[in-house]
Design a protein around this nucleic acid. Sequence first.
DNA 1: ATGAAAGCGCTAACAG
DNA 2: CTGTTAGCGCTTTCAT
Lengths: 384, 384
Amino acid sequence: MNDPPDPDPPHVPGLRPIRMKDIAEQLGLSQTTVSHVLTGKHAKFRISAATVERVWALAQKLGYRTNAMAQAFREQKSYAISLAVEDLSNPFWAGIAVGAEREAELHGYTLVVSHLAGNTGRLRRALQLVHESRVDGLIVSPISGGDCDLIAAHEQGLPFVQIDRAVPDLDVACVRTDHAAGSVLALRHLLRHEDRSLVYIGGPLDIATYRHRLDGFQAELTRSGVAAAAIEELKEATPEAAEARMVELLQRLRGPLAVYAANFCSTVGTLRGIRAAGLSVPDEIDVVGFDDILMADLLRYPVATVDQDVGGIGREAVRLLLQRLAGAEVAREVLLPPRLTARTSDVPRSEGRARARRARRADGSPDPSRQSRSGGPGKNKKSN
Amino acid sequence: MNDPPDPDPPHVPGLRPIRMKDIAEQLGLSQTTVSHVLTGKHAKFRISAATVERVWALAQKLGYRTNAMAQAFREQKSYAISLAVEDLSNPFWAGIAVGAEREAELHGYTLVVSHLAGNTGRLRRALQLVHESRVDGLIVSPISGGDCDLIAAHEQGLPFVQIDRAVPDLDVACVRTDHAAGSVLALRHLLRHEDRSLVYIGGPLDIATYRHRLDGFQAELTRSGVAAAAIEELKEATPEAAEARMVELLQRLRGPLAVYAANFCSTVGTLRGIRAAGLSVPDEIDVVGFDDILMADLLRYPVATVDQDVGGIGREAVRLLLQRLAGAEVAREVLLPPRLTARTSDVPRSEGRARARRARRADGSPDPSRQSRSGGPGKNKKSN
DNA sequence: ATGAAAGCGCTAACAG
DNA sequence: CTGTTAGCGCTTTCAT
């Protein structure tokens, strides 16, 4: 329509992005030369400094942006990776996403997220993204029922890495917390008091995660030459189950206890059971939980927790995936060390205050304090 | 290298995806015809049923997948949108991401996430993604210091929508909770007892969100013909500030109270202050908080909360963005109604149990109960 | 030191 | 009903 009356469009805002061709034409150069300059290969092609300068200047003036779609098409690389997790709204997975996004960005990659919600259909769609080259590779946390899909995907050579959980007998890298090491931390912490009966309470042992935690606990017991008063396996990892079991346990067991509640829900249930029994933590019963996730801050229970390096899981998963995309052989398993966070009193101070800050809402207001804790990308705001 | 000795590769797994051309050649058809069939336009072009069938069969057999990059390049549409939020690891934003991802997927779009962490550099990179056509549009929650970047982006015609917060005087759609309506819910709930002094405690009023909440509260006060005993504006929205204020308040005010703690941190602080004073909720003091976010479940405080429809914010933001990308005029502001969740006792039951389930870790174990609550996409698992 | 040309996989306008 | 052709923006030989 109105093409002829528009022979010199300097920078009309939303209309038609600038292409290399545009720059070339206005400069009386070939598009090739512009490409050489703009992709930083002017040295290699010995473009004259003057030309380089002119191209740069005009590109700047016109607001040239490389067209990522054309580039992706040309190179057959989308520069995007996908993260498919069970439940993005869960702080555990969200933390992984944060770490992954950070690392991906560092390498010029974009992070696409998929919320699987236990749905194998969604898992298949996530795998599709790779097949369709919408993303170059996938980071996935295996969900129940999806094992065969992942096995098939691997046979087709589809590039992915697993996180948190590994499909049995599948030769694909997995990044997760070293749960056994976490149990070692927990036990050593509990062993700082003498003469306490040791209790382990955790989730069902057919789940590999819980198996690892108990194994680590028992191995360290052996090494320490001590015995546990009770090993409690819950049939269901819920606060209710843990609370019930704890109440029951407190009737059986005498004397001061040291409890390792080996997962989040067990921790909550354990604390409730203890409170219901009218006992105090940590004076009468000491508790170490697993996974922090805001809880300790909000409840202000003086419990120590074994915290997973969720950001690290995301970060390492991305690194592994990118290595694999680059054709390198990668580790079969990457274990990240957890850390133990001790909390001393009911009154938040120092570290406690830092944690409180993480739960605070900013909502547009400047955040006065902003320094990383332990390298993790886990700064939080906005909780109202 | 070994190209000649491989003239007929049926479906070698990871090697070279099948193109339309491959199908066309093997069938002695033109690539165009294959395209017509595979894109479902065979009716329009009146392709013979036999041909359609042959193409379909071979595509199936060869495992043809449309190459999204080529398609994106051709159509100049990436079929990806970006969600840039302050802090992905915060359940509020993560919930929005879940809702957004669901809606995006429904429309064949992919969701790219960016974790801004209050960093304007990251915001600019998020805007870059659109400039570079890596994504078609952006959903962004304005962060402090980023207003000018967003204003500039809008002037350049870059397609985006805002969530939760709106840059003042910027004519760009914003999707957020109807905070004022939330306050109405809160006040009506508190007014169910007679003879209670009403207290409002909330964050600083230079933040629009908190302003809206107080405005809604006061408007409803007027409509109800009642007066508040105290309107408390905290300088900082932290649990510590709220607790201190509450302690102070409890010394000043006599008689049964009904408190509206208008944001999450205020709620936590308020409850702590009340507990510190040895008073009981809700018998001596009734409390309505703002934003659920696991708290009520873990703390089992019998407080009601005004909960935001976080999934809905994500969903509507995507809808608006896609409409705008389709060239439609869109609403300037979309307000989502919050809902009030009442909790009656200390013992979790019915709804309480459903909430508990959300906080539970599945980790590979099958999830027995799986039905949506109130249309929101917020099924949760994995918290250990 | 610069340019011409081909092609990545797909779609669409236009012929037959 | 099916095929020919051109082109999306960019990179990359290969010439000059």
